[in-house]
Design a protein around this nucleic acid. Sequence first.
DNA 1: ATGACTCCAAAGGTATGACTTATTCAAGGC
DNA 2: GCCTTGAATAAGTCATACCTTTGGAGTCAT
Lengths: 234, 234
Amino acid sequence: MEIQGLHGRLLADLGPAIASGEIPEGAVLRSEELESRYGVSRTVVREAIRVLEAMRLVASRRRVGTTVQPREAWDVFDPLVIRWRLEGADRPAQLSSLGGLRVAVEPVAAAMAAGLATADQCRELSALAVELTVTARSGDLEVFLGHDIAFHALVLRASGNEMFAHLSDAVGAVLTGRTEHKLMPHHPAPYAVALHREVAEAICAQDPERAEQAMRAIVTGALEELAPTLGASK
Amino acid sequence: MEIQGLHGRLLADLGPAIASGEIPEGAVLRSEELESRYGVSRTVVREAIRVLEAMRLVASRRRVGTTVQPREAWDVFDPLVIRWRLEGADRPAQLSSLGGLRVAVEPVAAAMAAGLATADQCRELSALAVELTVTARSGDLEVFLGHDIAFHALVLRASGNEMFAHLSDAVGAVLTGRTEHKLMPHHPAPYAVALHREVAEAICAQDPERAEQAMRAIVTGALEELAPTLGASK
DNA sequence: ATGACTCCAAAGGTATGACTTATTCAAGGC
DNA sequence: GCCTTGAATAAGTCATACCTTTGGAGTCAT
């Protein structure tokens, strides 16, 4: 997944630094400085900057340098930007935004999936629901997390909307973050697991209403769980 | 908005060609070929390719060249990718995806805005609703479109979710596309305009439920209007 | 024929020096 | 005080040389 080459290394260093606010808005990066700082050639520096520019993290102007753009300009849907922000000081804000996005997208995705899921997807979904139930009881959070991510990714994919499908990585990141940071209970709440079963059943039964309601309960629940750890939910 | 410099010109040429499928999946671009074809230097070609690579439109490997990636790999949320796809043969699929995204996001955004909109935003929203009503009657589609875009952008911004706010460009593109291509009636449907007023009122009255319902009616209506023009909605 | 090994050429990756162009800022002229 | 002009600066572009990886042709032994 990581980008290769020297420009990739630059990117992996500058990107998080900017996304976390370590390099603040308005700061100016000069090519020559970066060359000497990282001991690489202009070629490499320029390519890294082009990528950051495509993400709208920076903008370069002649005679001025490459300036870090304000947050509002950032391409907040870029997978790398999301990851970098999750790794840094912006983590709470990013989790909150993603939580809101989940609340919006996942219920609709579940409803659409109820009309479109193939028999195979349906089987897979049911199997994952069973696995969730089992691993929730056994308390193996690692494995539980894996199945949880797979479950949500499958629903998003089964929705038939390519843009929804592309959110699965971001959703995965949120779920991972919850298990890592937040004090997830040793045994996931039984009612949440039941809701996952409900979603799977409703989709397989081609019942959009029920699928949407159950999924909405899951994601709003997750968002509320998250709120306290984010400080001012305001 | 357009990217400057020679690498920008390359990008503006290659991007749409790939996004539209004119350059098909699996096609190989060799740097040297591009250099001579566009009469530019290695530097320029490489920088353009780095950007396309960041969008996951292409991937380059040594000894092999830069190969166009399958659609599923593309970063479908990248604003440029969205625009390029809208300009080309992928237009119907892109409009459909964006329509689905609107159905998911905008109602939730409206509900959130009902709790967060400032007095100023509320005034602006009401004013836009009035403008929509007036211009709908007068039949000035150009002006109507502008206000429509501003209205939806404002709701998204007022939701307080930065990711929602960043979707306003995409939503604007969908609305513009409808006015351009589809045979929009000379006078926008009065009921749709009424729904916009309803959304504005509900948000100003801090009534999330009503705002969400009204907005949902707007976006599902728009999606259904769109369906026939997309051929097989399947 | 089949498999494994070697080696070469092709294509991207990196480094570097020279030159071009736009833009800021300040000095100088009105 | 305001406008013009010019010089300094940093990004943008080009050409070239060289490095590194790797696919595939060719070879050889089984």
